[in-house]
């Protein structure tokens, strides 16, 4: 089996897809080199990331398939799924054959699987828009720790830039040691030391107490239903919630 390896970046993956059309050996699978377990029977080819080749593929997905396909591909990449590279490769090959009707082809497993994972990623993004909790630090700066299943920090940041106006904030993905930081309505994604410890502002504890008070009183006792609560708000997110 021929396997392409790329460096783990989105550009790297797109380069690998570019090369699959021009190299003699077509890949059966595409993996990120980080989570790849070599096997005696496989032939691996390492693909060097190339910005211009990646750009060409990016352009071509948008113009020859659809904007939606571009979005799908990026969401799959962010899912960090073991098979993400291969799924994207199979989906795009079909996409370039079918054009913009590829997403209608729900009877095809290559499309179905992409939509399924896309939905999971979008669902977590949407969930996070609500579940992110900012804490006010000293100096009127707001800090929010998160531990999402998928790498959705770049998908949620623009929402808060739009929403929070002049407020300066940082969203910290503690699983991946990255952070979205804003300053004057711009935001950047940076790496961050996992030992970062925030020091809370003076009013913060008080408002957390008020929020918990509200949370405990808004529930109707006669309708107590922890199963439904967990279904809507899985307990893996509770670590970073003030109210739980």
């Amino acid at each position: 089996m021929i396997i392409y390896l790329y460096d783990g970046s989105f550009e790297g993956l797109l380069t690998a897809i570019y090369e699959s059309y021009y190299l003699k050996d077509k890949p059966e699978k595409i993996y990120s080199k980080e989570n790849f377990q070599p096997n005696l029977l496989d032939d691996t080819i390492y693909i060097e990331t190339d910005g211009t080749k990646a750009d060409k593929v990016y352009e071509s997905i948008g113009s020859k398939i659809s904007k939606n396909a571009l979005r799908n591909v990026y969401h799959i990449f962010l899912s960090e799924h073991q098979e993400a590279g291969t799924m994207i490769y199979n989906y795009l090959r079909l996409g370039w054959r079918m054009g913009n009707s590829v997403d209608l082809n729900l009877m095809d497993n290559r499309v179905m699987v992409v939509q399924e994972i896309c939905n999971k990623v979008s669902r977590e993004r949407h969930r996070m828009l609500g579940l992110i909790r900012f804490q006010q630090l000293k100096g009127d700066f707001y800090y929010a720790p998160i531990e999402p299943d998928y790498n959705i920090i770049g998908l949620v940041a623009p929402h808060f830039v739009e929403r929070m106006g002049d407020q300066n904030w940082m969203i910290h993905d503690k699983k991946r040691n990255i952070a979205a930081v804003t300053f004057h309505k711009q935001w950047v994604l940076t790496n961050i030391d996992d030992k970062f410890t925030p020091s809370l502002g003076d009013e913060e504890i008080n408002y957390q107490k008020l929020w918990r008070e509200y949370f405990n009183n808004i529930s109707i006792e006669e309708r107590y239903n922890p199963k439904l609560q967990r279904k809507n708000m899985p307990s893996r997110y509770w670590n970073n919630l003030i109210e739980k």
């Binding site: 609500g130 949370f215 808004i218 107590y224 609560q229 809507n232 708000m233």
Partner: peptide, 12 residues
Amino acid sequence: ICHSWSDDGRCI
């Protein structure tokens, strides 16, 4: 956007 779910399972 729902921000939380109370103990009765209703969204907040």
